[in-house]
Design a protein around this nucleic acid. Structure first.
Lengths: 203, 203
DNA sequence: GTCTATATTCAGATAGAC
DNA sequence: GTCTATCTGAATATAGAC
């Protein structure tokens, strides 16, 4: 049960986020959310008409924390390698603090791409990346980096950051690492991934 | 409805795999599996006592296709860069043919790590990677590649291969690509990822 | 082995009192 | 706003005839 100084609505949202992240949307139970918020199911439906509505509110709130920071970095006018270092470090830190988020997001993204993409990109999806694309192409043209398309570069960076949190149980077992040792590996990626990418693309 | 020349059991397994991959374990309905197999629910339970049992059989069967090939590459005594190229190409091709598999696997892996890890690695999880580990360390010692730990290298390669299939809807929207264009990007990764990794680690 | 019909369980949602 | 009690629907699983 969360701090009683929060409004009931905030208690619910906090409890709902925790349960959704732990169990996934399909696995989450309204009963459990109510229990953790210290109320009952009826009141849950009084505040949020349905589970679907509740989840949308939670997703909206949760994504709001991260997205502006990512876009700020991608749109900043800055040396490309520094952008990559900042992106890896800031987004990586956020992921360390929210390690369950990737699995939840990936599932909802695939279940309802429309809703999700609109939430992340607003009305004009393709355009937000224009600045970053120009900077990559300029760096290629100037011979600063290997010829690589913006899609491939971006997919690579994002994959390297997020996937370890999804495959963690597998990696830990295959590599024969303790939970602490695996955590240390993830920590060191906050800098290692950036250098890995930079070495790969540097001309 | 599948080919009627198959035994009922095979019809069921085939239908079950399709539904599990499309809907996920939680989202799959026994009714739909029965429908696609051309039988009814009761018969489904006659062959497989429960949904859980059925899913275990399907997972077992599906993973069996891929795992031996991966281990063969990791355990082969071969030049390291060639191993990476083979791994990316063979595993990548498999993923292209089974694009829905990653999402299903990742969910089941996190839902039940024990069962899953045992299925993938057998009784002695940490040991199967010994040969590959030695080869990486030897390459580092010989100055052929940058100093990198086996865990980081392996996590990187696997992340670069699998994650694009999980984040595909997002990437497609962010990058403003058509479905065909996105597919082309994924295709070209079959070779590009290997070269990306090799450039990153080459001394 | 295969079917129809039914039992059981569970979870989301609502009614209505306070 | 908050509660107890209840409805409704869906989905897994089983009984029993053929």
């Amino acid at each position: 049960m969360a701090s009683p100084t929060l409004s009931t609505e905030q208690q619910i949202l906090q409890a709902a986020q925790a349960v959704f992240l732990e169990k996934g949307l399909a696995g989450a139970r309204m009963q459990e959310i109510a229990d953790r918020a210290g109320i009952n199911k009826a009141l849950l439906h009084y505040y949020f008409k349905s589970k679907e509505k509740l989840s949308e509110t939670v997703v909206h709130q949760t994504m709001g924390l991260m997205l502006p920071r990512i876009w700020a970095i991608l749109e900043a006018d800055q040396e490309l390698f520094d952008s990559i270092r900042r992106l890896v470090h800031e987004y990586g830190t956020f992921l360390q603090e929210n390690p369950l988020l990737p699995l939840f997001i990936i599932n909802e993204l695939n279940r309802n791409p429309r809703f999700f993409v609109h939430l992340m990109l607003g009305d004009k999806p393709g355009e937000r990346l224009q600045r970053f694309r120009q900077r990559v192409e300029a760096a290629v043209a100037a011979g600063l980096i290997q010829p690589i398309s913006t899609p491939q570069l971006l997919v690579n960076v994002v994959s390297l950051m997020i996937f370890p949190f999804l495959g963690r149980p597998l990696f830990q077992a295959v590599l024969g690492l303790s939970s602490a040792a695996m955590q240390a590996e993830l920590d060191s990626r906050l800098t290692e991934v950036a250098e890995f990418v930079i070495r790969a693309i540097r001309a």
